[in-house]
Structures are given as C-alpha cells and as structure tokens.
Deep mutational scan, measured.
Amino acid sequence: HNLTITQGKLFFHYNPKLCLSEIHKMEEVSGTKGRQERNDIALKTNGDQASCENELLKFSYIRTSFDKILLRWEPYWPPDFRDLLGFMLFYKEAPYQNVTEFDGQDACGSNSWTVVDIDPPLRSNDPKSQNHPGWLMRGLKPWTQYAIFVKTLVTFSDERRTYGAKSDIIYVQTDATNPSVPLDPISVSNSSSQIILKWKPPSDPNGNITHYLVFWERQAEDSELFELDYCLKGLKLPSRTWSPPFESEDSQKHNQSEYEDSAGECCSCPKTDSQILKELEESSFRKTFEDYLHNVVFVPRKTSSGTGAEDPRPSRKRRSLGDVGNVTVAVPTVAAFPNTSSTSVPTSPEEHRPFEKVVNKESLVISGLRHFTGYRIELQACNQDTPEERCSVAAYVSARTMPEAKADDIVGPVTHEIFENNVVHLMWQEPKEPNGLIVLYEVSYRRYGDEELHLCVSRKHFALERGCRLRGLSPGNYSVRIRATSLAGNGSWTEPTYFYVTDYLDVPSNIA
C-alpha cells in the first residue's frame, strides 16, 4: 500500500525493539523526510534493546553428524571492536523451508527459537588472519532439518551509529543413524509349514526405512522333555500350542467401542483428552525405555581390526524358502538304536541362519518350516543398504507352526516275539517326523474274553527296548493296539495285532 503524509511529521519514542533503520525507511515511504526535528525521533529510546544489523554474515563451514552440527561463519568486528559482546545463534526444527525470524513471537518477546549466546573469538592483530567464530550444536535429532541463523550482539553506541551483522536463515539436516526397533511384532501360524509375521514401523526411523531383515531359527525343545518319565503317576503330560491366527481386521481397528449394538453396526467412541494424553505418555515412556535398553543392555560386537582377528559373527547367506525346513542338525536320541526319531534339535552355532529381506511392506510369510516346531524370529529395521547396512537392534518374537495331521501315527506293522515265561516283546517304529517329539506310547492289549488293559511306555523305555515287553501273560489269544502321544496330543491307534500265548508248562520236552 502507498502511504503519503502531505502535512505533519513523524514522532517515535520509547520503541526499544524498533531499529532506527526501520524508522528511516518509514520517513522515505511516507514522504516526511526532512520535516522531523532532532528530538522527534529519539536516538536513545528507539532500538536500544534490539540488534540492528546492516551487514550480512556468511557461514564459512558446515559439518553434520547424526546428532551434531558444527558451524563456522566469517569474522565480524565493528569499528570499535570492544562493542562486540558476542553472537546469538538461533535454531529450531523446520520440516519445511518457510521459516521466518519472527515465527511464534508474542507480545512478551518470546519466540519459538532456541538461542545460544556465543563469546567472540580472540581478536588477531592481523586483519587478514582473524579467527572464524563458530559453535557445535549438540543433542539434535537424527535425520531432522533445522533452520539456523546467527547475528551479532553489540553494545549501545553513544554516537548512535547503527552497526551489526546478521546471516540469512539456512537449512541444515542432520545425518541418518540406526533406527529404533520395529514396533509390535506379531507372529502367527496359518499352516503346519508357515508363519505369518506382521509389525509396525519404528517410532524413530532416523532416516528413510529402506528394508527390513527377518531372521528365523528353529528352537530346540526343553531338555526336561527328553529326561522326564511322563508315565509316572502324578506327572502331567506336557503340551505345546501353536500360535493362533490373526483376529479379523475389524476387531483390530483402534479407537473402536468394545460393545456392539445388537441391531447392527455401531460407531466408534472418540477417545477423551485424558485417554489420548495417557497414550502419549505411555508411548514416550516406551521410547525412553527402549533407548535405555539399547544403550545399557546391548553391547556392540567388536569388529575385526587390522591384526587379522576374525569377526566372530557368522556370515549372512541367503537361502531359498524351500530350504528352511531342514535348518537344524538332527541327532538321534540314543545312538545305539537307529530307529528312534531325530527330534532332539541342538543347533550348531556355526550354522548360517536363513533370512529374508523385506522391502516396502511390514509383513512376511515364512514358508518351508517344520510342522509343530518353535521358531525364534528376529526382526531388524534398516535405513541404508549400501555401502553397508545400517540397521536397528533386533526385536524378537516366537511362534510355533501348526501340527501336521497323521504325523504322530505309527507307520509300519507292530511285530512281536514270544519268549519263555510268557513274555512277549512288542516292537514298532517311532514316527519319523512327529509333531514336536514323542513323549510316550500307549499300549492297549486284551486277552479274548477279558477286559482291555493299558500300559504306558516312556520315551526312554522305548529307546532301550525298541518297544516294550509284556510279562506274566496268561495263555490265550491276544490283540494289541499302540498309539503315540506327542507334544500336540495323541496320534491314531494302530491296526490290531494278534498273537497267541501258550502255557509254557505244557511245552513238550526233548528229553527222552
């Protein structure tokens, strides 16, 4: 807008934040220059609390790290170098490059900038070799853009010569660093050979998330399962459950009422301010606690030095998902009996873990797994792929695949051998790939016309006998059925096997 004052003059007093240069501009645009008398524009009460600059400061050096910015700028000295009290560095987070010096300023003089007072450097006698002032900004957020400017702080001049310097606002972004852990990993099994893994992005990506790394490792069953005799009275049979499938998407929606109208769909109840505040506090606490764990609990591995020492970490090797089922080394339970199943799973520490690289999504279907087997899954978020990966501390989750139908069934015939004193040795093959492992066998036998009897055969007993022995049988026709019990439950009964026990007292003698 054009402003013209045809008559009258300007009068400025007691404006401590208004620089004289701005008042002189007002004289020019209003056409009143030359009308004012000496005392109409006070030299001592206008701009006496402001830094009124008329020179431009330029930054000469900028260096960044993930949490620091090192700045240096060209030296500046007023005509009387004693008038320079120091520099004021202003900075704040700036997602967009549209910041002005006066953003967030209120009537009390406060604003949204963080201000650092910096002492002037030592003055050199040689004007050509003056030290460049600077400042190291610490405690910054990774991968965050900051708006920065600097200006001088000078003393009051009796001659009211307006001098000083100020830089333009520059924008500097800190470097990326390792992201925080992925949030809320959930693993479920939808079949006997697959596990579905879902997660949420890290709360602090500290860069642009480029991919996720998912490692999985087959877990050995508890050692007590191999040692305890679950045929003993009072000892509860062990059981394991597989990871249940995901709930429906509708039930997972946030901010939804727990109660549904019987007449149909209901609208979600909005969260109160107290609920939102509580969630923010919980989120802040979780982030602080995660940072504490990362800094205190997890110790970084030592990389190899120039002395030739090897990095103890196993090298990563990509495998196809079809090879995942046989990740671990199978060892027989008892070496003397080769027909026992290889369900003991000690994992070799030198073995390469299978892994998958996930790009542009937060889910993965891990296939080719062994049925009813526990897996430990390790999830890392990465925001750099080359020249070397920059990934987060791992988040861990466990899951067990679903049982395989008929995996616990005894394959092959049940054979028998009759000894003296009416002892019958029953023999059968253990299931080759049971659900988890076989903890015991149930032997059901009966003599024709009598009630059915049951015998429990422990895992250890089966390994020693290759089956079991029935003792003290009365003469007669017998039928026997056997079924295995694994961590997933009972298998199917075998087809009945028949044998006849004679009275050993009636056996004919070869003595003449």
Results as ranks from 00 to 15, higher is better:
Y230K: 14
S315V: 12
H211C: 01
G306K: 13
W493E: 02
K361D: 04
S342L: 14
P403D: 08
L235G: 07
R319W: 07
V327P: 10
T241V: 14
P238V: 05
R218L: 12
H352R: 05
Y292K: 08
C391R: 01
P332D: 08
D250L: 15
W242V: 14
S398A: 11
Q384P: 07
L293P: 04
S344Q: 15
D261N: 11
S251Y: 05
R459Q: 13
D273C: 06
G308M: 14
S243R: 10
R471P: 10
P403F: 07
V443W: 01
L364M: 06
T502V: 13
D291A: 11
V327D: 10
T347H: 12
M402G: 02
T307H: 12
T401P: 04
L455A: 12
R301F: 02
P245D: 13
P300L: 04
R483A: 04
K236E: 14
A399C: 08
A394V: 08
I482Q: 08
M402N: 04
R286P: 09
S341K: 09
R316F: 15
Q252V: 09
S257D: 05
L464G: 11
S268T: 15
S474D: 08
S486V: 01
E417G: 07
K317M: 06
V480F: 07
S284R: 08
L321I: 03
S239F: 06
S486P: 00
R313C: 14
P338V: 08
S458T: 13
L470Q: 01
L235C: 09
V480I: 13
P312T: 12
L228H: 03
E281L: 12
L277M: 12
S342A: 13
V359Q: 14
H454G: 15
Y212P: 00
P205W: 07
E310L: 15
L235V: 09
S239M: 06
A263F: 05
N422R: 11
V299Q: 12
E495C: 04
L277D: 08
Y504I: 12
V327I: 05
V324W: 09
F419S: 09
N383T: 11
S248H: 06
M402R: 02
Q275P: 07
V214H: 00
N383H: 12
G368Y: 04
R400S: 09
L455N: 04
D450K: 11
I366R: 02
I366G: 00
R471K: 12
L473M: 11
A336D: 13
S479V: 05
S304G: 14
R466I: 09
D408I: 00
N326P: 10
T340K: 13
T288I: 15
G308F: 04
E350V: 13
H454R: 09
M427K: 14
H416C: 08
A399V: 11
F355Q: 07
V334G: 10
F226Y: 11
R376M: 03
G412D: 13
Y375E: 00
G374S: 07
R376V: 08
G374C: 14
K432Q: 11
C468K: 06
L235T: 05
R353E: 11
I482R: 01
Y375M: 05
S348P: 12
E260G: 03
R471S: 08
R318I: 07
L440N: 10
H352S: 06
E388M: 11
E310N: 04
R301N: 02
V296L: 07
P332M: 10
L369V: 09
L505M: 05
P387N: 02
G467L: 03
G374A: 04
T272Y: 11
H371G: 10
K460N: 15
S474P: 07
V439M: 04
C266L: 09
V423G: 15
D273T: 04
N421E: 15
L277W: 12
H352C: 12
T494R: 02
G374K: 10
E452H: 06
P431S: 04
K271I: 08
G234I: 14
K302W: 14
S304I: 13
K460Y: 05
P413I: 02
R447P: 11
S492N: 03
P346V: 14
D408G: 01
E260R: 13
T347L: 13
T272V: 09
K406M: 09
R400I: 07
V414E: 01
T347F: 07
S283Y: 13
A330R: 08
I276Y: 11
P332F: 15
D385E: 13
L237P: 06
Y259V: 09
E258P: 05
T343A: 14
P314I: 03
S398L: 12
D250P: 14
R483P: 01
G308T: 09
P349L: 08
